[in-house]
Amino acid sequence: MTARPGLELVCPAGTPAALRGAVEAGAHAIYCGFNDETNARNFPGLNFSRDEMAEAIKFAHGRGAKVLVALNTFPRAGAFWRWSKAVDDCARFGADAVILADLGLLEDSARRHPDLRLHLSVQAAAANADTINFYARAFGVKRVVLPRVLTVQEIAAINREIDVETEVFIFGGLCVMTEGRCSLSSYATGKSPNMNGACSPASHVEYREEGGYLMSRLGGFAIHRVAAGQPAPYPTLCKGVFEAGDYKGYVFEDPVSLDAAALIPQLAEAGVAALKIEGRQRSRAYTEAVVRNFRRALDDYAAGRPIAAGELRALTEGQQTTSGAYRKTWR
């Protein structure tokens, strides 16, 4: 048997409890953020205070796991210091890396914390080798999280031309637009991933029963309709039902989630260094189950055993899944 490349499993944590659960379930690295507008999952009741972050990093390091802190919104004009201070805190707490998207923040962090490892967030949408090489040269970025617009073949080609690591999404929610370059949410609600760390925020969601149907609205715009009594999907804008000319249906994407477990071997062969699970907003139980299954899949792959991907299917809660842009036909 030939040696297979090891893959780092990067897992989400929206709370200290989820972080501990993910570490115990076998995560190699955890990504998380502070409970403010500095990170792109800025949901009420989620994320870490400064004290919790310091504690969490100690806990993870004690068990051989890394903590990567996402500071991946774009700093608000006039309040840049808040993001800059968050990077300082990560350095002080001993975070293994910060995940950044903003050019100004990358430059500021590289200058003031030359020893802090910088990862480029998916929100920066570096979709080709030239862009990645620019970030590597300008700021010394060590790893790039690739946007979900690339096929496995394109990822392999990128890895041949760059000297930094790549990380790709393997499971969970799926952006269909290029990440960090989408203002659909702020068009409908005024809140955007880039500025506020929130896409299709719950504060702007309304469910109402109307004539035997349950209508879901976002910012007043009808996004989805199901028969009353049926489970209604969350009205994420790009997964809504719309009418474009003669076409009526999911104009952008069906309400699917990403499951690329079957592509683990191809992604490893494409030179990917790390696989990322989406879902900082998910419960501890969900996170643990996903992490445990993926850790087993990676261990199976590394040992040359067949990957038992079937168990993961139960975790998508009967939802449709897709392997997204990794297969060219998705486009």
Partner: peptide, 16 residues
């Protein structure tokens, strides 16, 4: 106003 750019073509998708 340009709101989003994607790897997928929605014009093509709307025409199957």
């Amino acid at each position: 106003i340009p709101l989003a750019i994607s790897g997928r073509c929605y014009h093509a998708r709307a025409h199957s």
